[in-house]
């Protein structure tokens, strides 16, 4: 259970890290290592070079941005995100999610960016970040670009990131409405998860736009477009009933795999359960906020 021999580089500059990765055929960036090192110890991955990003200053910073968003450094650990005052205040659902990832040792080492880039389907953050409309900043040999969180993960262990591109930060717009996230797990990793984020109209009770994303049950997070369309323009108080009517059709369209986490039909059913519970929670947030 030791990794195959590899080289380790520990650059302190982003440009140097990109240069090192681009120059080596089989290199991997190393952030928290909670997934990567396990795969290397099992010898499923045998990189020639590991480029450790932890010595690059500022990659784990969490800050408030002028455009009402929270900018989270890709190397911020789950524990940092969980305990950060800005995240707790503006993105409480993300703080709560990070507080429940795996166990405290993993949370103290694993990073939000690492989690996204590894693209293990049974993961918590990608689903919620997609629902929140997060944008991911990638920096590579050919410059910088921004990718929407829901376009980043392409499949199992597969992302839009080029091999020498580094995710530097994750920008999460502060939501203008309720957010709810739930997962179902029987074991350490989620079997199914679901996130709901509503953008409320100025009246505070009409759902201008709804985002409903489910994850872990298929190869990548999926929008539940049918329900999103059903909810747009509806009052929060009518959401539960609308979702109940469309739910069977909506979950029937979800791509789900039969695997050790459950049969596809069971996981689609669970997605429906989690969505229903999230909708109830989101509606309760509106009711609670309305005098």
């Amino acid at each position: 259970m030791l990794p195959a021999p590899f080289q380790l580089a520990r650059p302190t500059e982003l440009a140097e890290a990109i240069r090192l990765a681009a120059a080596t055929e089989d290199s991997h960036f190393h952030a928290g290592g909670t997934e990567l090192l396990m795969a290397m110890k099992l010898r499923l991955l045998r990189p020639e070079l590991l480029v450790d990003l932890k010595r690059i200053a500022g990659l784990d910073r969490i800050a408030w941005a002028e455009d009402a968003s929270v900018v989270i450094g890709a190397l911020a650990t789950h524990r940092q995100v969980e305990q950060d005052v800005i995240v707790r205040r503006h993105l409480p659902a993300l703080a709560a999610l990070c507080a429940n990832v795996a166990n405290v040792r993993v949370r103290s080492a694993g990073t939000l960016g690492g989690n996204l880039c590894f693209a293990e389907p049974h993961a918590d953050p990608p689903t919620l970040l997609a629902a929140l409309g997060a944008r991911l900043r990638l920096v590579g040999p050919d410059g910088e670009r921004e990718v929407a969180a829901d376009a980043f993960i392409l499949g199992e262990f597969e992302t839009a990131r080029e091999p020498a591109e580094i995710m530097t930060h994750i920008t999460v717009p502060v939501p203008r409405g309720p957010v709810a996230y739930r997962r179902f797990r029987h074991g350490e990793r989620p079997a199914v998860n679901a996130a709901v984020a509503w953008t409320m109209a100025a009246d505070g009770v009409t759902i201008e736009r709804a985002r409903i994303v489910v994850g872990a049950l298929g190869s990548r997070p999926q929008d539940v477009g049918l329900l999103e369309r059903l909810l747009a323009g509806r009052r929060a108080g009518e959401a539960a009933e609308a979702v109940a009517q469309g739910l069977t059709d909506a979950v029937g369209e979800i791509e789900a795999m039969d695997d050790r986490h459950g049969g596809a039909d069971y996981k689609r059913h669970l997605a429906g359960v989690l969505i229903t519970r999230n909708i109830a929670e989101a509606a309760a947030q509106i009711n609670g906020a309305t005098p």
Binding site: F184, H186, G262, G263, Y266, H269
Partner: peptide
């Protein structure tokens, strides 16, 4: 007695 078996 996994959740899936119990659910089924």
């Amino acid at each position: 007695l996994t959740p899936e078996k119990v659910w089924r």
